[in-house]
Design a protein around this nucleic acid. Structure first.
Lengths: 207, 207
DNA sequence: ATTATCTATAGATCTATAGATAATGC
DNA sequence: ATTATCTATAGATCTATAGATAATGC
C-alpha cells in the first residue's frame, strides 16, 4: 500500500464519531475538562464506555478534536469582516453575528470560555497559529478606518475584546442573566438593540 | 452552656483557615471545582490532606466558604454606585472600579466565572438572595437617570451586563488577551482608556 | 475478513475517615 | 485537657486495556 494510505471511514464510523463529539460537547461545556467523565459522554452518546475508546484514543483526544473543529466556526464571523465594506455596517454586522452565534451555539461558547479560563492548556497553540494572525489583520483594517476618519478614533484591539466580551456574555453567563432578568425573559431582542446602540455610539464618538 | 455557644477559634485555627482558603482560591480558580483536588490544595497550603479536613468538612465546604466570603467583595463596587452623585461620573467610576478589581483580583473573577459558566450549581441561591436585589435597585437608579434626561436613554440591565463583561474579560480571558497583545504588553492603561471612552460615548448618545 | 461492540478488570486517582501521636494552653 | 497533626487505609470513581463475541461487507 502507498505511504499516505488512509482507509475511508465507514458510515458507522462517521456517524458514531459525530454522535460522540456532540455528546462530549454537552458534557465538556457543562462540567469542564476535568469535570467531564467518559461515563457521562458514553451515556449521552448512547454507547458503551469502551466503545467510545474504540473511536477516540482517549478523553484528551475527544476534547482536542472538539476544540480544533470548532475553532473554524468560531473565527468565521471575524473572517467575514470585509475591509472594503462600509466600516460602521461591517462592525455592527459583526457584533450581530457574534451575538447570534452566542445564542445559537452556547455550548461552543462555554467550551471555549472554560478552556481560556483555565489558561488555554490545550488550545494555546491554536490561539497563536489561527486566532492571532486573523486578529492582527482585522485590527489593522479597523485602525485604517479610524485613521481615514471613517469611524471615530478607537483602539482596535480593545474594541474587538469588548465585542467578544459583551456578546459571549449572554452564553457564558446565561445562568446569571437568567436569574437577573427572570427565567421567562428572552434577552435576545433587548440585547441586540442595546449592543447596536452602544457600538453605534462609540463608532460615532467625537472625543 | 448556653444554646448559641460557639468556641472562639484559636489563632492557629484562624490562620490555617485563611491559608487553606487562599490555597483553595488558587487551585479552584485555575482548575475549576471538579478539576481541583484536596492534594493540590494541601500542597499549596503547606498542610497535609487530612489536616485540611480537620479545618473544613470537605471539598465542597471549602468551595462554598470561598464563594460566600467573596460575594461581598464582588458586589462592593456596585453598592458604591451613588444615586445622588453625578450620573456620568458614577457610572464611569463604577466601570473603573470593576476594571481595577478584575486586574487586582483575577483569581476571584475566574472563580466566579467558572461557577456561573457551569450553571451556578453551588451559587445559584446567593445570586437570587444577594445579587438580584442589588441589581434591581441599581437598575432603577440608572433608569431614573435616563428618564430624567441626565444620561442617554439606555437599557440599564444590559448596560450593567456590558460593564461586567468588558471589565471581567481582562481577568477571565487573560490567557487569550496575553496571546493577542503580546506577553510583554500591560493591557491596563489602554483598557482603561478604551472603556472610559466607550461608556462615555454611550451615556452621551442621542439616538 | 473486517469492523464494531461487549464483559471484565487493571491500575491510578481522589475524597474522606479512623485512630494514634505530638503540640499547646490552662 | 484540648487542639493540631500524622500515618495508614477504606471505599468510590475514573481512564484505559485485554480479550472474547457479534455484526457487517465482500
Amino acid at each position: 500500500m502507498p505511504d499516505g494510505d488512509q482507509k475511508k471511514p465507514s458510515r458507522i464510523q462517521t456517524r458514531n464519531r459525530l454522535v460522540i463529539l456532540d455528546a462530549a460537547l454537552n458534557v465538556f461545556s457543562q462540567h469542564g475538562y476535568r469535570g467531564a467523565t467518559l461515563d457521562q459522554i458514553a451515556s449521552e452518546a448512547g454507547l458503551s464506555k469502551p466503545n467510545i475508546l474504540y473511536y477516540f484514543q482517549g478523553k484528551e483526544d475527544i476534547h482536542l478534536t472538539l476544540l480544533s473543529q470548532l475553532m473554524e466556526t468560531w473565527l468565521d464571523p471575524l473572517v467575514e469582516l470585509d475591509p472594503d465594506g462600509d466600516p460602521q455596517t461591517e462592525i455592527l454586522d459583526y457584533v450581530q453575528r457574534k451575538l447570534d452565534m452566542a445564542l445559537e451555539l452556547p455550548r461552543e461558547s462555554r467550551l471555549f470560555a472554560g478552556e481560556i479560563l483555565q489558561g488555554a492548556p490545550r488550545m494555546g497553540p491554536h490561539l497563536e497559529s489561527d486566532l492571532k494572525p486573523l486578529f492582527d489583520q482585522k485590527c489593522e483594517v479597523i485602525a485604517g478606518w479610524s485613521a481615514a476618519g471613517k469611524i471615530a478614533p478607537i483602539n482596535p484591539q480593545h474594541l474587538i475584546f469588548s465585542i467578544w466580551a459583551t456578546t459571549q456574555h449572554y452564553a457564558d453567563f446565561a445562568a446569571q442573566v437568567t436569574v437577573l432578568l427572570g427565567a421567562d425573559t428572552d434577552p435576545y431582542q433587548t440585547a441586540s438593540e442595546h449592543l447596536r446602540s452602544m457600538f453605534t455610539a462609540i463608532l460615532r464618538n467625537k472625543a
